[in-house]
Nucleic acid binder design. Structure first.
Lengths: 307, 307
DNA sequence: AAAATTAGTTGCTTTTGTCAACTAGTTATA
DNA sequence: TATAACTAGTTGACAAAAGCAACTAATTTT
């Protein structure tokens, strides 16, 4: 057995104790954790059947039936016979049910607040980030498309992080040395020197407040523009992020009425290449080069925008 | 209520479901989670009293007494009257008790193994690291000094990340604009251009494989050296990381027999300044400047190494 | 030396959860 | 289209889990 699993077990034991969910009464209320979870499930899905609840929470239907009976008597829920299936009921929370839940939520949040009050804001940030990481890694579906956000204003730290991503990802995927990162640093310095908010733009895709993908448009003479720094963290590929970034970039070029967009890439970047072609880019130049400890073809792709 | 707490609540709900601790029988054994926790507590501390267990696990002593009675009957534990206190018993696991626990451990590890089998080794590492971070932050002792690691070989992604840290931290702490980051990029480009592994070095302090602090020594003409890019993530201050980095840097200068180390800083960086003075640096120059949207004093500090 | 406190046991009770038999409506099948 | 098989939910009977209070015997405090 690896040490990874034993470390996880150790964390599980810690977190079981931390959650403090083993006492019968949830947050000193007159309800048990099971009852609260039932109420919570109802609030999550607006309307739900008893059957569904037994599936989600893994409860005995007889047991649940009795709990629901009590909830009904206490006016926490409403039951309406389902129109599709007259055996079943659509259950939903009443106002007082929702009220109870919101009181408990507040209590729970206060309790959490108490546990993290000694942390400073950046420690809190680290905590939440780490929790998200744990959750993402343990979830089947991994990353949800809706959790990706997009923006294009440069804030302090962005450029450095994008340079970091270039160095780290190309280092890992293609074994590029740190010389490549140095080259990226140079390109970004030049970009920032000539940066014009009017005609240049960087788009960033973020997950958990961390940049996971980017692309940029850099204006060039003669109504041309260069597409640069198209990059996607390998863990975030196949989610449509690349397409979204490229579309935004090309739309920007159209809006600014650039007549031609070009990009320089290498024959190695097969995944990115595929996307460029999909967006309409065509190969216009190919040249063998030796750099960052590798031999490859440096290629130019062009996309004409206005006939 | 901040979003931090609601994010934590969300994680708690997720992890409660993930742990799957709400079913009566732990891992299909004939024992409940409470019983297993009791056995576990006994295995952790070799020998323990019932009183101690009730304190740790928050159990009713009558309830525990009966569980222990059953354990005794099943030959899982041994009770020996304490020599210090004749009311109490020292309880410990028998061989078959230990055996039971080790079977359950294996089962539990298999279950965990199943949940993480799709992760690659680096993802597993990230998972364990993040769990440690969560645990450390939720435990009194916060970040453990032992979890900080130090290194000084530059790997792809490092420089970009250090630039990022400069931009993000100075942006947050002193409201520096992205122009500052651009300046940092320039300094790093120049550094890499002239980089000599013999006479230049960057030290990095890491936590969970993320850089949280750094410092560098850059060789200069006339047997001088410049100390640059001394930076510490605010969440990691006060742990002795800064002192360690500066000591390593100065030791390196001594080893290379540089006669003088200097550094340029601003009057704003009070925390870093304090550390410089502690290491023996003395103010040699001060000049008012206006940059990155701020007015401040640019100062030079020197440390003579050889008389 | 008496009073107060503590470790652990036991009887009694409530709460929580399980199982199986049942009703009534739905779906599959031939 | 009638019947068999199945499903949503209810109910009775019961077992397991947990809590409370009174008790014994040893220890500590005053």
């Amino acid at each position: 057995m690896t040490t990874t699993t034993s470390k996880i077990r150790s964390f599980n034991r810690f977190y079981t104790a931390h959650l403090d969910i083993l006492s019968q009464h949830y947050l000193d209320s007159e309800y048990s954790l099971t009852e609260i979870r039932i109420l919570y499930e109802m609030s999550e899905s607006k309307t739900i059947t008893a059957q569904k609840i037994t599936e989600i929470l893994n409860l005995d239907k007889g047991y649940l039936s009795r709990i629901l009976k009590r909830f009904l008597k206490e006016n926490l829920i409403e039951k309406v016979t389902s129109s599709e299936d007259k055996r079943a009921f659509n259950i939903k929370l009443t106002n007082s049910g929702n009220e109870l839940l919101s009181i408990l939520n507040t209590k729970s949040e206060n309790k959490i607040e108490g546990k993290i009050e000694k942390l400073n804001p950046s420690e809190k940030e680290i905590l939440v980030d780490s929790m998200n990481t744990v959750r993402n890694l343990l979830t089947e579906n991994k990353i949800a498309r809706e959790d990706i956000t997009y923006r294009h204003e440069i804030t302090p730290g962005d450029i450095g992080y994008i340079i970091h991503l270039h160095g780290a990802i190309y280092g890992k995927e293609y074994n590029f040395s740190t010389d490549f990162e140095k080259y990226v640093i140079k390109t970004f310095y030049d970009f920032l020197e000539k940066y014009s908010p009017e005609n240049d733009r960087i788009w960033m895709a973020e997950y958990n407040n961390k940049i996971v993908g980017c692309v940029a448009i850099v204006h060039q003479p003669n109504e041309e523009a260069q597409l640069r720094w198209f990059l996607l963290d390998p863990a975030f590929r196949g989610l449509g992020i690349g397409k979204r970034l490229l579309t935004d970039a090309i739309d920007f070029c159209k809006e600014k009425e650039f007549k031609n967009v070009f990009l320089l890439t290498t024959s190695m970047q097969d995944k990115a290449l595929q996307m460029y072609k999909m967006m309409g880019f065509e190969l216009t130049k190919s040249e063998e080069v030796e750099e960052w400890g590798k031999t490859f073809y440096e290629e130019r792709y062009d996309l004409r925008l206005i006939g």
